Amino acid sequence: NQASVVANQLIPINVALTLVMMRSEVVTPVGIPAEDIPRLVSMQVNRAVPLGTTLMPDMVKGYA
């Protein structure tokens, strides 16, 4: 099963993503693939993302 990107903490809106904010985990439904974590660094989410939430492509500005 493919690992997805999961919030490692509350990720506020309009804050640049850092490695420490994200972890990889096998979850259902599948979200952004874990291998895209380096690409996500410095991008921003378009809504607050609670701890443990799977990041979906539509949550990250400029990802999709």
Rank of each mutant, 00 (worst) to 15 (best):
P29Q: 05
R47V: 12
A16H: 10
T54I: 07
Q44P: 10
V41F: 06
L10W: 14
A64W: 05
T53R: 11
R39Q: 09
G62F: 12
P33Q: 06
V26M: 08
V49C: 06
E35K: 07
M21Y: 05
L51M: 15
A7E: 01
A64P: 09
V20L: 13
L40I: 14
V6I: 15
Q9T: 13
A16I: 10
N14H: 14
I11P: 00
V20H: 14
D36L: 10
A3S: 13
I13D: 12
N14I: 03
P29S: 04
T53H: 15
A3C: 13
P50V: 06
A7G: 02
V27M: 07
V15C: 06
A64E: 09
L19C: 11
I13L: 13
L40F: 01
M59F: 10
V41G: 00
R23H: 04
M22Y: 02
L55V: 08
I13A: 10
A64Y: 05
V15A: 13
D58T: 08
M56P: 02
A3V: 08
G62L: 09
M21R: 01
V60E: 01
E25S: 11
P29V: 06
A34T: 06
V20A: 14
G52I: 03
R39N: 14
I13T: 14
P57I: 05
V5I: 12
S4D: 01
I32C: 04
I37F: 03
Y63T: 03
E25P: 01
P38V: 11
V26T: 12
V15M: 15
V20P: 11
M43T: 04
I37Y: 02
R23E: 04
P57K: 08
V5S: 03
D36T: 08
P50N: 09
Q44Y: 15
V45E: 01
M59P: 01
E35N: 10
I13K: 13
E25Q: 10
N1G: 15
P33V: 10
A16C: 13
L55G: 02
L51E: 13
A7V: 07
L40Y: 02
V27A: 08
A64K: 14
T54E: 01
L17R: 00
V45D: 00
T18C: 04
T18N: 05
G62S: 09
N1V: 15
N14F: 07
I32Q: 00
P29T: 05
E35M: 09
R47Y: 10
V6K: 03
N46C: 15
V6R: 03
I37T: 08
V45Y: 03
M59T: 05
Q44H: 14
M22C: 03
L51I: 15
N46R: 13
E35S: 12
P12N: 14
R23N: 05
Y63H: 04
P50I: 05
M22H: 00
S4I: 02
M43I: 04
M59S: 05
I32S: 00
A64H: 14
R23I: 04
V27S: 05
Q2V: 10
V30P: 13
N46L: 15
G31K: 00
Y63M: 05
I13E: 15
N46H: 11
V26A: 10
R47H: 10
I37D: 01
Q2G: 15
L10G: 11
V26L: 10
V5A: 10
T53F: 12
E25M: 10
V6T: 06
I32G: 01
S42P: 00
V27N: 03
S4N: 00
L51A: 11
L17W: 02
I32V: 08
L17D: 00
V30R: 06
A7P: 01
N46M: 12
T53W: 14
V15G: 09
Q2E: 15
A3R: 07
L51P: 10
L55E: 01
T28E: 15
I11E: 00
V41C: 08
T18D: 05
P12G: 09
I11H: 00
A48L: 12
L10E: 13
T18K: 07
G52N: 15
I37L: 10
L40M: 07
V15N: 08
Q2N: 11
L19G: 05
V45P: 03
R23K: 10
Q44V: 15
P50D: 09
V6Q: 03
E25F: 06
M22L: 14
I13C: 13
Q2R: 06
T28S: 13
A3E: 14
Q2P: 13
A64S: 14
V60T: 01
D36K: 11
A48G: 07
G62W: 10
P12W: 04
P33K: 08
R47L: 06
V60I: 13
V41D: 02
V27R: 09
N14S: 09
S42M: 12
A7C: 04
P33T: 06
M21A: 04
T18F: 03
V20F: 15
N8D: 11
Y63L: 06
P12E: 12
A7M: 04
P12R: 07
N1C: 12
M43D: 03
V30H: 12
T28C: 14
N46A: 15
E25C: 08
P12A: 12
Q9L: 12
Q2L: 14
A3F: 09
V45T: 13
V41P: 01
M43R: 08
N1T: 15
V45I: 10
A7D: 01
L55A: 02
I37P: 01
P50L: 08
L19T: 07
L17V: 04
M43L: 13
M21G: 00
V45L: 14
N8Q: 11
A16S: 11
L10H: 15
I11C: 03
A7L: 03
P12F: 04
Y63R: 03
V30L: 14
M21N: 05
E35F: 09
T53M: 15
R39M: 15
V5Q: 02
P50F: 07
Q9M: 11
V30N: 13
G62M: 08
P57T: 06
R47E: 07
P50Y: 10
A64F: 06
G62I: 04
I37K: 06
V15P: 00
I13Q: 14
R39K: 15
A16G: 13
V60C: 03
N14G: 13
V20S: 15
I37W: 03
N14D: 14
S24H: 10
Y63V: 04
M56L: 11
Q44C: 12
I37S: 04
D58E: 13
V26E: 15
N1Y: 15
G62V: 04
Q2H: 13
T54A: 05
P12I: 03
P57Q: 08
M21W: 03
R39T: 09
P57F: 06
S24V: 09
M22R: 00
Q44M: 15
V26F: 09
P29D: 06
D36E: 12
I13F: 09
P57H: 09
Q9W: 06
T54P: 06
E25L: 06
V6A: 02
V6S: 02
P33G: 05
P29Y: 03
P38L: 10
K61S: 14
Y63E: 04
E25R: 07
T18G: 05
V26N: 15
E35Q: 13
E25D: 14
D36I: 09
V26G: 04
V60S: 02
L19V: 09
G62H: 10
A48T: 14
V30Y: 14
D36C: 08
D36N: 11
I37A: 08
V45R: 00
S42R: 10
G31H: 02
V41E: 05
Q9G: 05
T18E: 07
M59Y: 09
I32W: 02
G62A: 12
P57S: 07
G62C: 15
A7W: 03
M21I: 02
V6C: 05
V60H: 02
M21T: 02
V15S: 12
V49W: 03
V30W: 12
D58L: 10
A34N: 05
V45N: 00
L55K: 02
L10C: 14
N8Y: 03
V45K: 00
R23A: 06
Q2D: 15
Q2K: 07
M59W: 11
T54V: 08
V49D: 02
A64Q: 14
V30F: 14
L40R: 00
L40A: 00
V20M: 15
R39Y: 10
M59D: 14
V27P: 00
S4L: 01
V41N: 04
V26D: 15
L17G: 00
V49P: 01
Q44S: 13
A34L: 03
N8M: 10
A16F: 09
V30E: 15
N8L: 05
N8T: 14
V49K: 02
I13M: 13
I32E: 00
P57V: 05
P50G: 07
L17A: 00
V41M: 07
V20T: 14
V5K: 01
L10Y: 12
T28A: 10
L10A: 11
P33Y: 09
L17F: 03
R23F: 03
Y63A: 04
R23P: 01
L51W: 14
A3M: 14
S4K: 01
G52F: 04
I11V: 07
L19E: 07
N1K: 06
V41L: 15
G31R: 02
P33N: 08
D58P: 06
V49T: 05
